[in-house]
Amino acid sequence: MRPPSLYVPGSTPVHRADPVTKGVWAASLTLAGFLVPDWRGLALLFLLNAAVLARAGVLRRVAGLVLASALLVVTFFVAQGLTHAGSGEVAFRAAGLPFYREGLVFALTLAFRLWNTILAMGVLVLTTRPQDLVAALLMRGFPPRAGYAVASVVQLLPTVWAAVAAVLDAQRSRGVETDGGLGRRLRALLPMLGPLVMASLTAAQERAVALEVRGFSRKGPRTVFRPVADMPGALAVRSLGLALFAASAAWRAVL
């Protein structure tokens, strides 16, 4: 098993767009989704983001994420359909229970909000290397220590992940059973996690020394060695995102 990752490498215009512009877009459209009161409006946002994702060539990946949310969507329809009566109009009955029309429409709205979140955030996370995002934030005055905390997870997670197999081997060879009844497997939890955590914390201790040596706690200005330039037309794209957000807020206010 490999450590999780969502980034899909590529060189489409969406990939090349700067992380801040994509971030503004993703945040505005996600929030817009929660303001638009009607599922039909949400469907428009959905299509807009789907078009961007198609241009980035990551539709297949995002479809996987949408499918993974299926269970949540089903619970929307069941829970809201059964309990959100509104005017009391029953759409249909299943197993003797009434499913209300307004509840089902509300569930559809919720489902689109969920999908809209996945798609809008997907524009950012599926096409941006986490390191580039952090570099872009650092250039805008994001504190370097916080930037390090986020960026280094990308590098460190695979190393801790790889140690799981080694620890499993070592403990099984000393007689720790990792198969069998629930009790037995529960007892293997500490011998598994103990070495992983202790080795990681010790490594963190040494890594802190290495960071000190490299001037990590030095005061004064820092250089961003690989500056991330804004994409051409960045202002226009960001404005469009914010405009869509404003329009959604207006729609909400009017209703």
Partner: peptide
């Protein structure tokens, strides 16, 4: 402290692991 900063990514990795 720098150690605490170095601790944060490790905490996240431990969550995942």
């Amino acid at each position: 402290t720098t150690f605490m900063v170095a601790l944060i990514p490790i905490a996240v990795a431990v969550n995942f692991v």
